[in-house]
Each structure stands twice: as structure tokens, then as C-alpha cells.
Design a protein around this nucleic acid. Sequence first.
DNA 1: CGGAATCCCCCTGGATACTG
DNA 2: CAGTATCCAGGGGGATTCCG
Lengths: 132, 132
Amino acid sequence: MTKPKLRLVTPDQAQEGAANCKALGQVLDRIGDKWTIMVVGVLSHGPMRFNALQREIPGLSHRMLTMTLRGLERDGLVKRTAFATIPPRVDYELTAVGHSLTEPLYALAIWARGQQANIEAARAAFDASSTD
Amino acid sequence: MTKPKLRLVTPDQAQEGAANCKALGQVLDRIGDKWTIMVVGVLSHGPMRFNALQREIPGLSHRMLTMTLRGLERDGLVKRTAFATIPPRVDYELTAVGHSLTEPLYALAIWARGQQANIEAARAAFDASSTD
DNA sequence: CGGAATCCCCCTGGATACTG
DNA sequence: CAGTATCCAGGGGGATTCCG
């Protein structure tokens, strides 16, 4: 060990990593909540009305759906279209940006499904050894 | 348009989508919190000690770091190695599974950085029109 | 130095009811 | 049918303290 410093990454990579972490943090703050990805997932099939959306996602309260949609709309991930008819009707659909999000999300889903078994096994093993 | 039903996805794809959503939900429950990805990001550079880890992530409290590491360890994403020396020393490092997570995460980070500007713009526009 | 337990505050998010 | 406002409980998470 004669190295003065042990750096496993170059400063440039570290900068990259830091920037990525910040960016990742932002996205996760947006999509990391309980409902957002569900809504995006359902919406990825096509436009949908408010109530249809709620019916599609069990456990999602009226209020939470409103807030989730608001957030997504605010960030330009979904487009809201209101028809001033009686009864009123509002359609929600993914924008181009919203759709583009589904791709990396899909990659993550693939990983999730691939590692699911490993993770559950690890969890069981961990719980067993701490309970014992 | 002679189709009897307007389905943008086949039933099979819908099943896929549902399964993916579930899987995604699981991952996001794990990595969606405030600190986990930061820890994974820092650990992706190499093994690190508890205090070094904490110093690396501003705002991360002692307690939260403990809990975050516990969770990751439980799911087999990080490996914990304790040395019974005085003073005690504990190293944390990503496991193979943990490292494999960084890949889809990286894809997501790329997306994040690419869309960051769009999202901020949309957000500003949205806020402007609602504040007006 | 690393971890666990206690305390406590704040904010998320659910239920309900009202407006248009 | 869509959205907002109010109320309120539960838990996430920070500060602190004590143990090994």
C-alpha cells in the first residue's frame, strides 16, 4: 500500500456520479411515492378518465389520485383535457416526455422481476438469522 | 376502424404490465426513500466505513444511515463486514446484486438528466399559470 | 466507532362532505 | 363526474442518549 490516495474512480467520474445522484434523487422524489408509477403504468396504455383511472388502481383514494395527477401534470408528464359538458369529463394522457419515462422504468421493472427471488431469499435468510 | 374493441395493448401485455407494476412497486418501496439511492451511489465506488459514508452524504443522520444500511443488508444489496478491533470498524460494500441495480438506475439517471430541463420548464409554466 | 432505544414533531395521506 | 377543503390519525425521520 504505497498509494497516497486510494481512489476507485477518477474525479471526473465522481462528478458524474454526483450529478447522476442528484438527478436520480429528483426523479425518485417525483415517482418514488406510492401511486405515481401505477398511474403512469395505467396511463401508458392510453388516455383515461379520472374515475376509470381510480377504478383501475385498487386502494387509491380520490384525493391521492388528484394530487398524483396534479404533480404529473405540473411536471409535464401527463396532459389534462377537460370537456365542459354535463356531466363534466376530464381525460388524462401521457405526454411524449411521460411516455419516454416508461422506457427506463421498464428496464428497472425487468431488473426487479429478475432479482425478486434473490431479494426475497436474502430477506428471509436475514430475518431468520436475526430472529433466531 | 372495424375493430370491435379498442385495445391499445393485448391482454398478455396487460398481464405483463400488471406484473411489472407490482415488481416496480416493490423496488420503489425499497429505493424510493430519501437516502437509499445516495448510499448505493456512494457505495458503487467501493467499500466504505460507516462514518465515511455519513460524511459523504450531507444531511444524512446517524440513525437514518443505520436504518438504510440495515434495509439494504436485509435485501442482500450490501454486505456488512465487522472487524472486532478497538476501535470497532465496519465496512459496507455492494454485493453483486447491489451492483446490478446500478445499471437500470443509471439508465434512469440518464433519463433524468435529459429531461431535467423540460421538467423544470413545465413546472415553471404550470406554476406561473396557476399563480396568475 | 458503530448500533439501539427513546422522544417527539411534522407531514403524509385517508375519510368525509361540499361545490360546480 | 371532477375537484377542493377540512379534519385527523399514523408513521417517517430527526435529535439525543446510552451501550459494547
